[in-house]
Design a protein around this nucleic acid. Structure first.
Length: 472
DNA sequence: TTTTGAGTTGTTCGA
DNA sequence: GTCGAACAACTCAAA
């Protein structure tokens, strides 16, 4: 049944006209998917496997769980268009991939690699448990980790040199898909979707979203910072689940205008953070610049609770958290403001905020989330000046001048005027009363005073900077 | 080896 | 209201 595999003697170069297995993970599409292309080109029949791993599934927030299920249902439908089905299992991939290989008599397995230390460890265990060859690709990134290098052959710790090298480098060829038939056997069922919670799943819906972005991308540079508008790509979740290939996105968008170039540059950032995580498995746990691990965080439990619940008294911060809690997503500009507020104004360890975001975000992705949090905290790659502390009121006035975003997420402040709503405490009690707001009753007093908190943060950061080497 | 130049996303102050 | 400079020193890449 499985003569080659059983002996583990199949050589990589022998075409195997039999059964191949594609283990889907974060590449929930058939188009522009190198693992899928390779398998369909090299085998007569392909089994499409997805393993729902409770270690990951149960830890994800409800929006990400629902989006995953929507994507799985959609992938199953897409496969049905090829006369097949998605073969789903629940449990530990180390057991279930091997079990699936035996059940179907698979000759070779294919998957797209992932950058997290957890995934790398898991995949190694899975591969070691298989008696057949495995072929992996980097189908979730434009360039594979380790291929975008400085003149000295290292991964740049500064973005711009990375970007130049990333941009210069031609894409490695991905395999061309073949015409294998798809196994129609079903395994465990895919849990059904809850009524609310997720956008339409699957690659067809994702391509529709990409098309819609093309109508907005030329204004990307200016509108991307306005949280009340759809100025960003809104594609982060599709890139997270691989319902879109970053290469497809890059190709379709192109670089014919400034807005398009600015957006493709963001894809380079995405690759950069992923490459950094491969090289630095400690990235999620420690400051990339070591001295900042010795920062004296306050980590005040009341502050943390207020931040997590959107009750800090700073409308732009609370609006962002409420958007996150209500939708599983937060506008990028607001993510920076909200993160800066936690780390700088409240002096809370960036890892606490990072974990919270990662849990709740529908697009939650270890490499991207950690990279961006370390950037905001000033502990990460690239040396942005440490005294750069976002002023939540200035940011709010600048990027949500009309208060439209604030009113949507904080309706209790909706009747305040455009110029009043960004800092309720600055208004006379009479003006507040006329807008139906009593501070401390309808909406909280600010939990810190920003200008004082800013000085406090600068002091804490300065102490670390001046710390003599070796002192603990 | 040494030197040079640059570095996503900001704020505040004073002219 | 607008504008430029200061914030402070460091790390990294590349010449």
């Amino acid at each position: 049944m499985d003569p080659d595999g059983a002996k583990g003697l199949t050589t990589m170069n022998t075409p195997t006209r039999d059964i191949g297995l594609v283990w889907f993970r974060r590449d929930l599409r058939l188009q522009d998917n190198p693992a899928w292309s390779a398998a369909t080109a090299q085998h007569d029949v392909v089994v499409a496997l997805y393993v729902i791993d409770p270690r990951l599934f149960d830890r994800a927030g409800s929006f990400r769980r629902q989006q995953l299920l929507a994507n799985l249902h959609a992938l199953d439908e897409t496969l049905a268009g090829h006369g097949g089905r998605l073969f789903v299992r629940h449990g530990d991939p180390v057991d279930l991939v091997s079990e699936t290989v035996h059940r179907f008599g698979v000759a070779r397995a294919y998957w797209n690699a992932d950058v997290t230390p957890f995934a790398a460890r898991r995949d190694l265990q899975v591969e070691q448990g298989l008696a057949i060859p495995v072929q992996t690709f980097w189908g979730s990134l434009v360039h594979a980790p380790g291929t975008v290098l400085t003149a000295k052959g290292t991964l740049s710790r500064v973005f711009t040199p990375f970007y130049k090298a990333w941009h210069r480098r031609p894409w490695d060829e991905w395999p061309v898909p073949g015409d294998a038939s798809v196994s129609a056997e079903v395994g465990d069922s895919i849990p059904s979707l809850e009524v609310s919670g997720s956008g339409p799943g699957g690659e067809t819906a994702a391509l529709t979203r990409l098309e819609a972005f093309l109508d907005r991308v030329d204004d990307y540079e200016t509108r991307r910072d306005l949280p009340a508008e759809d100025g960003t790509s809104l594609l982060s979740t599709d890139l997270r689940f691989g319902t879109l290939s970053p290469r497809t996105v890059s190709d379709v968008v192109g670089e014919s205008t400034a807005g398009r170039t600015a957006f493709v540059r963001q894809l380079a950032w995405r690759d950069w953070y992923a490459h950094l995580l491969v090289e630095l498995p400690e990235f999620p746990h420690h400051a990339m610049r070591e001295p900042f691990d010795h920062l004296t965080w306050r980590n005040d439990p009341d502050d943390i609770a207020a931040w997590k619940s959107g009750t800090t008294g700073y409308p732009i911060v609370d609006a962002g958290i409420r958007q996150l809690l209500a939708t599983g997503w937060m506008h990028n500009r607001v993510r920076m403001i909200v993160a800066s507020f936690l780390v700088k104004d409240l002096l809370v360890d960036w890892r606490i905020g990072e974990r919270y975001f990662r849990h709740l975000l529908v697009d939650g992705d270890v490499a991207q989330n950690v990279g961006n949090w370390q950037w905001v905290a000033g502990t990460g790659p690239d040396s942005s000046p440490y005294h750069r502390v976002f002023n939540p009121v200035v940011q709010s006035r600048k990027f949500d001048a009309s208060g439209a975003y604030l009113r949507h997420w904080i309706p209790e402040l909706a009747r305040l005027r455009d110029d009043e709503i960004h800092a309720p405490w600055e208004n006379a009690p009479l003006d507040l009363a006329m807008a139906g707001v009593e501070l401390g009753v309808d909406y909280p007093h600010p939990i810190v005073e920003h200008s004082q908190a800013r000085v406090r943060a600068l002091d804490a950061y300065a102490k670390v900077r001046l710390r003599p080497a070796g002192e603990s």
